[in-house]
Every structure is written in C-alpha cells, then in structure tokens.
Design a protein around this nucleic acid. Structure first.
Lengths: 129, 129
DNA sequence: CAAGCACCTGGAGTCCGGTCCAGGTCAAGG
DNA sequence: CCTTGACCTGGACCGGACTCCAGGTGCTTG
C-alpha cells in the first residue's frame, strides 16, 4: 500500500513552492516524479525524503550545480558512495568556513555596535561614522 | 599632508574589484570619490575605512538596499546614530539566526556523512541514497 | 615620439535561483 | 450542466549583485 502525496501536500511538507518543485525536477535535482491518471504528479515517500536532503544542502548554501552532481551520483547507485561522501565532507568544510567567516565579521559588527552605544547616552556629537 | 590612494591601491587593500568600487559609488554606497587632475579617483583614508565597514556588512549577508540605507543615515550626520545602531543590532540578530540555521542544517549533514561512513568499509551494498 | 598602462564613461550582459504567466485539462460538487 | 479548484505545460520574466565592453583620455617611460 503505497501512499502518494499530491503536489499540494509536498509543498506543505517540504516547504518548497510548487514552482520550485517543478523547477528542481526539470533541472534534474529530482527524479522524474511518477504521474497518476490525468498526468498529475504523485510523490512517493522517498521523494519527500530526498527533498529533505535537498533542503539541507540548499540551506547550507550549496550551489545548484553541485546539488545536481550529488543527485547524479545518487542516481548512479552504490558505486558512488565514496564520492558522494567526499562531496558532503567537502561541503561540510565549506559550511565550517562560512560560519567562521560570519563569526569573524560579526565580531567587527559587534565592536561597531558598542562604539555606537558609547555615543548614545550623552547627546554630544562625535566625528566618526 | 593628505595621502590619497589610487583605484588600484584600493582594489588591493579593500579586496573589492575596480568595477565593484565604481558600482558602489554609482549606487550611493560610497560618497562621490574625490578626483585628481585628469579625472582619476583619489581615495582618502576614510574612504578605505568605510569600505571596511561595507565589507563587513556585505560579508555578513546584508543586502545592498539595507547598506544603502545605512550609508544614507551615516551621511545624514550624528542625529541618526540611534537609528544606525538599531540597524546594526537588527542585522547582528539576523546574522545570529543565519548561523544558528547553518549549524542546525549542518548537523543533518554530519549525520548523513556518518551514515555514509558506515557504508564504506565493507563494500556491501545498501539501499538508501 | 610612440607605446603601454592605468584609468575614465555609459551602457549592456551575465549568472543564479527561482517565480510568473497564459492557456489548457480533469475531477468533484452544487 | 457548469463552475471551481488543483494541477499541467512551455516559456518569459525577475531581482540581486556584479562584470564586461567599447571607445576614449592622459601620464610616463624607453
């Protein structure tokens, strides 16, 4: 007893828009989704799972080209496990760098903020901007 | 004895491209830069400092529209200090959310990676992708 | 003096990641 | 029977942030 999901349900559960779902399918991020009678898409549970993976990759800033590569590897079967892992590991490192960078710039930001804070209480003018 | 910087020097020290510098000036992120004889730009030290601020904001993901708002406030003088600070504080919170989000998705990523790791040593096939 | 180089301008083009639209189909409900 | 709502397609369009280009100017260096 397979239970399929309608496009609308997938929108709800995946958080991707209908257009984005179709777009991802077109560009090969999703396998061609099965169709019911009438040509409407019926998503399987695995599709939804895969969408979860895509969300994770997307939200950590992986460019679509790389996601496509990953999808391709995934389609290619178990022989590509090592490569897929390598890809994710590299991406994880990328995320790490991104976060470090953000943190480092954020510290400047905070400095700036505390400088502003010193300028506030007394309405005395200062020169820096 | 003012020392000015040539566009090339600013490229080096700011890390922004020549085109980007001109672009930022056009759209009002930089004050109109002073010109030397022959019409070439001469950047002052304060310009470079300001570019540092822009870099910080840009690298923490602030959209250009918001940077422009900040630049405008900065141009408007000391009366806008409170507002500028508020803007930065809000942005800082935004950065915080971004980092939290990245971290949270990154944890899924790491799970995925360790799952792959279990699949590697023995070349036994499995089903998930 | 000629060539090279750094720089100038206005405007067009690029890339990314979607989003929107017009026009059509189908199933179910009033 | 007719409408409504969810869905379909191919293709055009968008916003953001640059980046590139053609054609021109002007110091400076061999």
């Amino acid at each position: 007893m397979k239970d399929f999901l309608s496009p609308g349900q997938v929108v709800e559960r995946s958080g991707f828009s209908l257009d984005t779902l179709r777009y991802y399918e077109r560009i090969g991020l999703l396998d061609r989704i099965e169709r019911g009678p009438g040509g409407r898409r019926r998503y399987a549970d695995e599709d939804l799972e895969w969408l979860g993976v895509l969300r994770c990759l997307r939200d950590t800033g992986m460019p679509i080209a790389q996601m496509r590569r990953y999808a391709e590897l995934a389609r290619a079967g178990d022989s590509t496990i090592a490569e897929r892992m390598a890809l994710l590991v590299e991406h994880d490192e990328q995320v790490e760098r991104t976060v470090a960078d953000l943190r480092s710039q954020q510290s400047h930001l905070k400095e700036k903020i505390s400088w502003y804070r010193t300028q506030l209480p007394g309405p005395q003018a200062a020169s820096e901007r």
